[in-house]
Design a protein around this nucleic acid. Sequence first.
DNA 1: CGGTATCCTAGAGGATACTG
DNA 2: CAGTATCCTCTAGGATACCG
Lengths: 133, 133
Amino acid sequence: MYVSRTGGSAVTGFTRTGGCPSTDDGGAIREVLDRISDKWSLLVVGALRGGPLRFGELEKEVTGISQRMLTLTLKHLVEDGLVSRTAYAEVPPRVEYEVTELGKTLVPLVIALADWAITHRDEINANRAGNQH
Amino acid sequence: MYVSRTGGSAVTGFTRTGGCPSTDDGGAIREVLDRISDKWSLLVVGALRGGPLRFGELEKEVTGISQRMLTLTLKHLVEDGLVSRTAYAEVPPRVEYEVTELGKTLVPLVIALADWAITHRDEINANRAGNQH
DNA sequence: CGGTATCCTAGAGGATACTG
DNA sequence: CAGTATCCTCTAGGATACCG
């Protein structure tokens, strides 16, 4: 899956462009966005893009996340079926997290967003600095 | 701009894939994400993808948003340079909001996200319903 | 019409301590 | 190591009322 360049989107969920109802009100976007646009979910999914990671590895990868938030975020992602959890019966315990097939469909978007953030970060910061009165 | 399909991203900001430091710590993503991943920003940008809209039109387009939140969200988007504000000296007053050139670079991603949300909404909801104990 | 100005509350999320 | 369990703070965001 890749992003259409500006013009060719089939369904957007937004209620415009010729009044096309698109089978769906914009509620779907809000619904999914509410799950994904928290402080950490996208970062965690992004961290898992290269393959499975252990809890501790994720903690280092996702800089600044607290143990509690990592636990909660992972729990939600697992519930939503975006990430799978595999616990190995060893001592010390080992638990690996990995994006599911569904999760993999989101990864390119996360990467695109990350690229966008890095590319335009300076410009945004400059605007911020300039526009504040 | 379009999203690379799974493999070809130049910079991601995530600190992996051969330990490539990517000129930048992951802080950029968090920084930009913190601005954009609030409850309404992406919805507002998405609503503006088809051209300029007035305040009142946005209020209808972005279902569920309060007047206060629309005001604040627009103010932030304008500050960041993603959206421009044009006030016409008429009575009754007319104010139009429009995505800037910078904002336009974000629009495809918002559309992609919206498409993803709509496409996978049911699957996510099914997982949610199934995984809760 | 397009906003401000206040007030108020739920819950996101941090810090710390403890556990199988 | 990979989590729970508590406690506590802070602020995003809703409701309501008013204004140029």
